[in-house]
Structures are given as C-alpha cells and as structure tokens.
C-alpha cells in the first residue's frame, strides 16, 4: 500500500473526472471544492481527512476528499450507490489495506496522529476505531465468544469475571442482553438478522473504541430492528464518535448531527444535518435529498 505517493501519481488525481464512471452525466469542474458549512457551535475534531484519494488498481474511486469528523456526534455519509462512501469509511480504519490492489493517498489523522504512518500498528488503530459492517458477520462461535474475542486479543480483561462483565456490559449497551441472556453459549449465527447486527455492534463496543464506523448497519433489518439500532446509535453518541453510511435520508436526518454528501467519488457538500436537509447549498445535494436522482 502506497502512501505519500510520488508527484507523478499526485498529478493523476487532478485529471480525476476522466476516470469517473459516467463523466458525461455530470461535468465536474477540475479542482472541485467541497461546500462546507460549519456547526453553529463547533465541536472538537476527532478525525481529520485531507485530500484523500483512493484507487482500486488503476481506477480511482475517491477524489481529494477532505473532511473533519467531530467528537461525540454522529456523522452520516449519504450519496448514490457506488459513489465511494464505503471506500472512504474503510480508509478511516485502514480496512482498505485488506483489499487486493487498493491504494490510498492523502492524509488522515486521529487526534492529530497520522493513521497511515508506517510505524503505526493497524492492530492498535483498529482497536481504537471499530467497525460494523453492512451485512451482519458474527463469528461462527457462541454469543459470548463473539463479544469476548476483541477484549481477549487486546488483553483488556484482567480476569474471567472481568471479561464476563465486559461482555454483559457490551450486550446491554447494544440492547441485546435481555434477548440473549439465557443463551450466551449458543452460536451467534443462530440469531435473527437484527440481533446479529446488534451482536456485531456489541462486539465492536466491547473493545471500547473511540470511533465507531458503521456501513449501512440497518440495510438488512426490518423497521423495528432498525428503530432499535437507531436508538442505540443515539445513546452511543454520548461517549463515542460515530460515522454511519446510510441510504435512508430519514435515518440520516434522525440519527446524525452532521451529514456529508458524496457523488461520483467526490465529497460534494458537508454540513449540519438540519441545514443539509432543509437548505443545502449545492443543487446536487438538493436533488439527491429530494429523490430526484440516486
């Protein structure tokens, strides 16, 4: 994986629009500047991204994305399918490292620390920035083992009772405990889809990350399970920095404080959620939110 790429590759990024899926549809101005609206009362910034470009092989998927992600708030990424939301989310905990042929350029920091510093240990980074995936993916092990795995590999529990406590706490935080307390030692894959997703959230919470990334966590869930998870996200906001990718405008409006709109690999606009949904500055944001394309 390349970072701080040589000049020649940097140049590439400026020729960006040519590589985009359908350049005829939208004529992107070269050197497009994201429209930013700051919060009325600014929150401290946790994660800071600067001119992030991502390539899958020779194909560029993200163009110069810069964004500040505030602490103890929910930031929602919205945008049409294939615009690069997941790609950007994966940059934030370096899950793109695991994808064959993916290359990230630019700078991302967590509390001022460069995430792509070669000296930095991804293992530690991912303990600090947890992730919940689009499809629930519990381990084919017991519910208890699913949640206990993270704390165990990171050595977070000093004793067995300590570990049990972490597991119970995490399950409670993910509002799953009451449903599974009698079958902690049954396999996690035997739960319903919504329960599995909450199990994955509990699993992510168990390592007490500072930032939680969620990639369409409710896309496979029914409205009731979705409501439960939204509630949960709202509760978690008090202690965590949360980034959520969603296709549901209502969900973004309900749970997030800030919203970022991506389109064709470009961060078009970002600002306070309320403003984004009432009076977006960009016409494209307006069109997407009102369902005129996407």
């Amino acid at each position: 994986m390349m970072f701080n790429a040589p000049e020649s590759q940097k140049m590439n990024t400026n020729a960006a629009p040519v590589a985009i899926a359908d350049p005829k549809k939208v004529d992107l101005p070269t050197g497009f500047k994201t429209v930013r609206t700051p919060d009325p009362e600014p929150r401290p910034v946790r994660v800071h991204a600067d001119d992030v470009c991502v390539f899958y092989g020779s194909k560029q998927a993200l163009f110069d994305v810069s964004i500040d992600i505030p602490e103890k708030a929910v930031t929602a990424f919205i945008g049409p399918s294939g615009c690069g939301k997941s790609t950007f989310l994966r940059c934030l905990n370096r899950m793109n490292d695991t994808i064959e042929g993916a290359r990230v350029e630019g700078k991302i920091t967590l509390d001022g620390e460069d995430l792509y510093d070669p000296k930095l240990d991804v293992v530690e980074l991912r303990a600090r920035i947890g992730m919940v995936f689009q499809k629930p993916n519990p381990f084919p092990k017991t519910i208890f083992e699913n949640v206990a795995y993270g704390p165990r590999i990171h050595g977070l529990a000093r004793s067995k009772t300590d570990l049990e406590q972490i597991v119970v706490e995490s399950l409670k935080k993910a509002s799953l405990f009451n449903e599974v307390k009698d079958r902690l030692h049954e396999v996690g894959t035997g739960l319903s889809g919504g329960q599995q997703q909450r199990l994955c959230i509990a699993r992510a919470i168990a390592v007490s990350p500072e930032v939680i990334l969620m990639d369409e966590p409710c896309s496979a869930l029914d409205p009731i399970a979705t409501a439960k998870i939204e509630e949960l996200i709202d509760e978690l906001r008090a202690n965590y920095t949360i980034v959520i990718v969603t296709h549901s405008m209502q969900q973004a409006a309900r749970v997030s404080q800030r919203t970022a709109f991506f389109h064709l690999g470009i961060l078009v606009e970002e600002g306070p959620t309320e403003m984004m949904f009432t009076s977006p500055a960009e016409k494209r944001t307006q069109d997407y939110i009102t369902g005129r394309f996407g």
Binding site: T98, K135, R203
Partner: peptide, 15 residues
Amino acid sequence: VPPSLRQAALGLGAS
C-alpha cells in the same frame, strides 16, 4: 471462507 469473516476479525483489531 467468506471474506466477511476475515473482515470481522480484522475490523476488531485482530492481526
């Protein structure tokens, strides 16, 4: 083995 299993572990900070 589905890649989601590897991602689940890696996402938790497993080496």
